[in-house]
Design a protein around this nucleic acid. Structure first.
Length: 480
RNA sequence: GGGGCCGUCGUCUAGCAUGGAUUAGGAUACAUGCCUGGGGCGCAUGCGAUCCUGGGUUCAAAUCCCAGCGGCCUCACCA
């Protein structure tokens, strides 16, 4: 047994397991620049899938893609005070052009609200120009000082940011919810990761927003990970950048704005949630390779028949738009290939050997549960399609069960602390809505309010911290 | 930014406590040839290391000291 594969168990040393899966499955690598990563083709292909899915959804609803500069003048970033205060600790600045100092330094975008809205002010004249719904796919930079975690914390990462302007507050509210639900669909139905939807507490909301909604999930180590956010920016930026329109009433009005985003962090979540001791498990809907075919030669027996049949299956699967690889490399043994493709997370494997030629069948093995099935020739394509669907479904189902298991309702602060230190995960607790209690809890336990769920529950106790009347039940957790 | 741990062929690692004799050793990967093939095959040959970088101590540094860089864990902050 070499160390080509993952050498630690997921449940024993989760951090080490994660690093090994990412590196050994060739998803990413450390860059020569501190805090930066290289997204390798197998992971980039997943990002492209996500782009495909999101693009389809946003274009179908009238959003259009565009591209704005990655450099933002300092004055722009400063113009919204709360926004600037929130981002300034982690902005990278450009101060030189060649060997000439710049008159005004330029921020490398940590997010694009300011540069985009400065243009919106120019483009929006009348109510007929609204709503304006623009999205961009780009890289952004946040100069983290903390240790690099591939996909989860890097100084540069890829994301999508939607920025819309509306005539009314109601429209902006609706857009915020549209984006959030669009993300829920992507994350749950494609990445097979169950999420909890809700709003952020004031202390956790986006710098410069009226309110922030988000999708949160729990990773296998018990820490929460934000899977996407959708902000209602109100008129804060509109007032700062003078984004106004003349309404049907002939009066000037500020627009109502939203912004929303998901990042390559989702790939990290997918790895963590679905992987096992053998490596990665890709949800079929985003897997760059959905099926791998491994021929099993045996002393030249039926060699030609095997070659013909594997090729035929490959062609038929491709005709059904299933992404398939025929691994007919002669320098590796079948067993080696099994391990390799399992490490890389290919959802379904088809084996064809002399025995299968004789019996008019093939062997199919599911990556998610290891189940092996003998499938008659005439059923191969239909069965492969069905199994890919089943795998997608059961991955979500399994993840749902884990999420439920990692969600604990607590009645007392002692219980709260015990869960934080113990199994972690979401801790549902009653809260009085005071920032002081929230801050104290964070200080004493490291847990923050991840989400105030849309699905409201009656407070079952007083505030878990102060004991006074609770306003709602919220989800606490330690987070990434 | 704070604290802890770490850095030797592509990868994993021995050597480092007690400086000198290993030509810096092994495994794996890679290349070539043969042989194999239903769960990481075997044999042979070959290729492969600025011992992270820069200083210092010393007759002598992979080994000791200092600084820097990078990684991992952890705390504060974030997607």
């Amino acid at each position: 047994m070499s160390d080509t594969g993952v050498t630690v168990k997921k449940c024993q040393d989760f951090s080490e397991w994660y690093v090994q899966v990412v590196l050994k499955a060739e998803l990413a690598d450390y860059a020569p620049v501190k805090g930066c990563m290289i997204i390798r083709p197998d992971a980039y292909a997943v990002w492209e899938k996500i782009q495909e899915i999101v693009n389809q959804k946003i274009k179908a609803t009238g959003h259009r893609n565009a591209y704005f500069p990655m450099f933002i003048p300092e004055a722009f970033l400063k113009s919204e005070a709360e926004h600037f205060a929130g981002f300034t600790p982690e902005v990278a600045w450009i101060t030189m052009g060649g060997d000439t100092p710049l008159e005004e330094k330029l921020a490398v975008r940590p997010t694009s609200e300011t540069i985009m809205y400065s243009m919106y002010a120019k483009w929006i004249r009348s109510w007929r120009d609204l709503p304006l719904k623009i999205n961009q796919w780009c890289n952004i930079v946040r100069w983290e000082t903390k240790a690099t975690r591939l996909f989860l914390r890097t100084r540069e990462f890829l994301w999508q940011e939607g920025h819309t302007a509306h005539a009314t507050a109601e429209e902006a509210d609706a857009e915020v919810m549209w984006a959030l639900n669009m993300y829920k669909d992507v994350v749950e139905n494609y990445l097979a990761i169950p999420v909890v939807l809700g709003t952020k507490s004031d202390s956790e909301k986006f710098a410069g927003a009226n309110y922030t909604t988000a999708l949160e999930s729990i990773m296998p180590d018990g820490k929460a990970l934000q899977m996407g956010t959708s902000h209602n920016l109100g008129q804060h930026f509109a007032k700062v950048f003078d984004v106004k329109y003349i309404g049907e009433d002939k009066q000037d009005h500020y627009v109502w704005q939203t912004s929303w985003g998901i990042t390559t962090r989702l790939i990290g979540a997918m790895i963590m949630v679905h992987g096992d001791d053998k490596g990665l498990i890709m949800p079929p809907k985003v897997a760059p390779i959905q099926v791998v075919i491994v021929p099993i030669p045996f002393k030249g027996l039926e060699a030609e028949a095997i070659a013909a049949k594997t090729k035929e299956i490959q062609d038929s699967l491709r005709a059904k738009c299933i992404s398939v690889t025929l691994d007919d490399r002669t320098e590796y043994t079948p067993g080696w290939k099994f391990n390799q493709w399992e490490l890389k997370g290919v959802p379904l494997r088809i084996e064809i050997g002399p025995r299968d030629i004789k019996n008019g069948q093939c062997v199919m093995v599911r990556r998610d549960n290891g189940q092996k099935a003998f499938v008659k020739n005439e059923d191969i394509i239909a069965t492969a399609e069905k199994l890919l669907g089943d795998i997608q479904d059961s991955m979500l189902e399994k993840a749902r069960a884990i999420l439920a298991d990692k969600t604990t309702l607590v009645a007392t602060y002692d219980e709260f602390k015990q869960v934080v230190e113990g199994k972690g995960g979401f801790i549902k607790a009653a809260w009085c809505n005071s920032p002081e209690c929230e801050a104290k809890i964070k200080e004493e336990t490291g847990a923050t309010i991840r989400i105030r769920p849309f699905q409201k529950e009656e407070a079952h106790t007083g505030c878990v911290y102060c004991g006074k009347e609770a306003k709602e039940v919220v989800y606490f957790a330690r987070s990434y």
